[in-house]
């Protein structure tokens, strides 16, 4: 893990003054000592979270895990069925279809959202823009809108029967576009809506990070005549890297579990073409009182997310070291 921001020394042509002492050796030395010396302090610091984690996550999750080995229906007894649920799941084509659709959705929604949120954050922080006070509110509002309302708004826009976009297209002499009954178009609408509603969250993370970049770096770079883009690339991006990492990680975890928005927009339709994983779990499991099966599917989802998270953490560590 990185222990301090990277001074942008690797920036070509930019000579940023470092601290008086060389950093790396010092840092390493601290690490070695830190590894074993402190037990009490970190334990105290994480204690409340640890307590909450055990009480409100481990306890119920273990119950759920036990359910996944049973044919529990939500009431009465929970007969043990071994790995049956997992086997059934891995043989279900609909599960793979939902998984692939979820991966496509995530692969599109995450970069779009991250780019937009970084862009809006930069625009809100930079001195180049005018009218920030309104923009700040406008970018923020979509995040407050509940999925059911988002659903009706986006149907007003992209409803294929009487939506605004199709109305404009037809008025201009075009053909109606099947925004809802074409699987890919339908997914695109959901991706756009998801980016629209989730930008603010990431944007605020980026704003806090951008405000946190030491000004001296920019001042030094300016003295060296670096352009805005060079400064952004060589100072800003490295300095906010820890935040970018967490934004990407949280966005992936969030979008992999997307359900409420897609349910409100197109119910995973047309048909089952855009059923994402959590909706699959819902439909096949909870709504049909197959709590055991739903639990098994959920733990498979958790395993997938865990792998994604660990891979990202690893990659991040490699990049930083």
């Amino acid at each position: 893990m990185v222990d301090s921001i990277h001074p942008p020394a690797e920036a070509p042509g930019i000579d940023v003054r470092r601290g008086p002492e060389p950093m790396r050796p010092r840092q390493r030395g601290w690490r070695l000592r830190g590894r074993n010396r402190y037990v009490g302090a970190p334990l105290v610091l994480i204690s409340i979270n640890l307590l909450l984690f055990v009480t409100f996550f481990v306890w119920p999750a273990v119950t759920g895990l036990i359910y996944s080995f049973t044919s529990y229906t939500g009431v009465g007894t929970a007969p043990y069925v071994g790995l049956d649920n997992y086997q059934r799941l891995l043989q279900d084509e609909a599960f793979y279809a939902a998984l692939i659709r979820t991966l496509i959705f995530t692969a599109c929604a995450v970069p779009l959202t991250v780019l937009l949120s970084l862009g809006t954050a930069v625009l809100l922080v930079t001195s180049y823009t005018k009218g920030k006070s309104l923009a700040r509110v406008v970018f923020f509002l979509p995040w407050l809108i509940s999925p059911i309302i988002a659903g009706v708004i986006w149907r007003w826009m992209f409803g294929e029967n009487f939506g605004l976009v199709n109305y404009l297209i037809v008025s201009l002499g075009g053909e109606e576009v099947p925004w809802q009954s074409n699987a890919n178009l339908s997914l695109i609408v959901v991706i756009v809506a998801a980016a629209w509603s989730y930008t603010a969250f990431n944007m605020l993370l980026f704003v806090a990070a951008l405000k946190n970049v030491p000004t001296v770096y920019y001042e030094a770079a300016s003295l060296d005549g670096a352009g805005s883009w060079a400064k952004f690339r060589n100072i800003t991006l490295p300095a906010i890297a820890p935040t970018t990492f967490i934004v990407v990680l949280l966005s992936v975890l969030h979008f992999m579990k997307e359900y409420a928005l897609i349910r409100a927009l197109n119910e995973g339709g047309p048909g089952t073409a855009n059923n994402l994983l959590v909706q699959y779990i819902f439909k096949m499991g909870f709504e049909r009182a197959q709590v055991g099966y739903a639990s098994a599917a959920s733990f498979v989802l958790m395993l997938i997310l865990m792998i994604v998270a660990v891979v990202q953490l690893r990659m991040n560590r490699r990049k930083e070291s």
């Binding site: 149907r155 294929e160 009487f162 809802q180 009954s181 927009l265 119910e267 339709g269």
Partner: peptide, 17 residues
């Protein structure tokens, strides 16, 4: 319209149009 039975369009709203 196909959208009602395939992708959750709101028939009540469509009729009200």
């Amino acid at each position: 319209p196909k959208s009602v039975w395939t992708s959750g369009a709101d028939p009540n709203a469509l009729f009200k149009s």
